[in-house]
């Protein structure tokens, strides 16, 4: 059921990318898709009743191994979030350049390339 909700979030973003014609709306949809994927990858590593993968001094290693959630998806998502920031910054700067050149965010008008 949780996976279905995340997939729904992703599909909303995909709908926005496919259907909307405002460039800012398309970028917003991309951000939503990215958030959905990140949450999904962290959810795959979740263990019900688990603890954060941070070892405490008073804790035996066996207890930690039995209770910790999967740290690998978290490390990968951490990288993906930062790269998502770079992608968003680049797309928005391209959109702002397009606005300066064409005076609109409408992709249907931008598609008619001049020259």
């Amino acid at each position: 059921m949780h996976y279905a909700l995340v997939l729904m979030l992703f599909m909303i973003g995909l709908y926005g990318v496919v259907v909307k014609r405002n460039l800012i709306k398309i970028i917003i949809s991309l951000i939503i898709m990215e958030t959905a994927v990140n949450v999904f990858i962290v959810m795959v590593g979740y263990r019900s009743g688990g603890m954060a993968p941070i070892m405490q001094q008073t804790m035996a290693t066996e207890t930690f191994i039995r209770n910790s959630v999967d740290p690998l998806p978290q490390a990968l998502v951490l990288t993906a979030i930062v790269i998502g920031l770079g992608v968003t910054a680049l797309t928005i700067s391209i959109a702002m350049r397009l606005y300066e050149r064409y005076g609109t965010y409408d992709v249907r008008e931008i598609r008619r390339l001049r020259g």
Partner: peptide
């Protein structure tokens, strides 16, 4: 989801975005 490390980074990212 027990991911405090992942939770701290996007605070900055969201504000910048």
């Amino acid at each position: 989801l027990r991911a405090p490390d992942v939770a701290i980074v996007p605070i900055v990212v969201e504000v910048v975005v």
